[in-house]
Write a protein that binds this DNA or RNA. Structure first.
Lengths: 155, 155
DNA sequence: CCAAGATAGTTGAGCCCTCAACTATCGCGG
DNA sequence: CCGCGATAGTTGAGGGCTCAACTATCTTGG
């Protein structure tokens, strides 16, 4: 790539980009810590359980879960392995497609979700929602929605 | 934590929070991919080299680097180990504090930074900067700056 | 109806990160 | 000026993630 042809970032862009980098890094570290200190599931496991809790019959096939959570299939397989061992989810065949696997939330998984939710939401408020005013939160949502779309198109 | 006392997120907050989650996840995955496919250093190594390039004598002590990059000391030690083996940085004693270690960028490190910069900036534009309008970018920067501060206070 | 490519998911090796324990040095209160 | 808590950085074991290879099943064009 030609160095002279690159459109470098101007000062404002550079500033915003670096705040984004630092902010996301520190935010996810702190949120992860909140889960590790006192909640029964990690942040990633929590998001997985949330997706299942909102699905019909509290079950989704692996590929759908991977897509919703933006995880690689391999990573999801490993994560579900661990959660299955702890009794939070089970695996079942998908009716009508013998390649497929349905991941189903158990009652213990639901209990873990319910137990983790207050601490999780409290941390998300403390670290993000309550730190921003409503306009900033809305703009953040809209902006990141665009970003997600751009990144998805680039896959 | 009492379930009934929790201030849950309203619908708009929930929406924005989920867009933020998905957006950051997909963004960093795509940016990491851009580095893995064709650039001589990973995203993390790139950020480390950027910090060094802006420091006097292209050197910083480990603790300062860890702080700027929001990395644990241990992680930084391991990362610098690997980069040192590849000749991108070297370690030197800090004059006046025999506990300290200065991490110094080599010429090869500088070359790697220069080689990676165009691809990096192009990807950041494609995935973030050019996707947002100027107002959104500014708000994003200000918002994440607040978030970084909140997370830092919580350490 | 079948061959070839696409899709679903798993596997295991290797790499990177985390965590706790450790060494070494600094600096301050008494 | 000494003892002790704080600070700087490293180490290695353990665990999670990535990547490529693999099996199994589905689907589609001819």
């Amino acid at each position: 790539m030609d160095h002279d042809a690159v459109r470098w970032l101007d000062e404002d862009q550079q500033w915003a980009w670096r705040r984004f980098l630092e902010g996301t890094s520190r935010f996810f570290e702190a949120l992860g810590d909140a889960h590790d200190e006192g909640l029964p599931v990690t942040l990633g496991e929590y998001h997985l359980l949330v997706q299942l809790s909102e699905a019909p019959e509290r079950a989704l096939r692996m590929s759908a879960l991977a897509d919703f959570l933006a995880l690689s299939r391999s990573r999801l397989t490993h994560t579900v392995d661990r959660m299955e061992k702890r009794g939070l989810v089970t695996r079942e065949p998908v009716p009508g497609d013998r390649r497929g696997v349905r991941c189903v939330m158990t009652d213990a998984g639901y209990d873990a979700l319910v137990a983790a939710a207050p601490g999780h939401v409290t941390a998300v408020r403390r670290l993000l929602v309550d730190v921003l005013d409503a306009d900033e939160m809305t703009t953040l949502g809209r902006a990141m929605s665009k970003v997600a779309h751009a990144a998805k198109g680039a896959e």
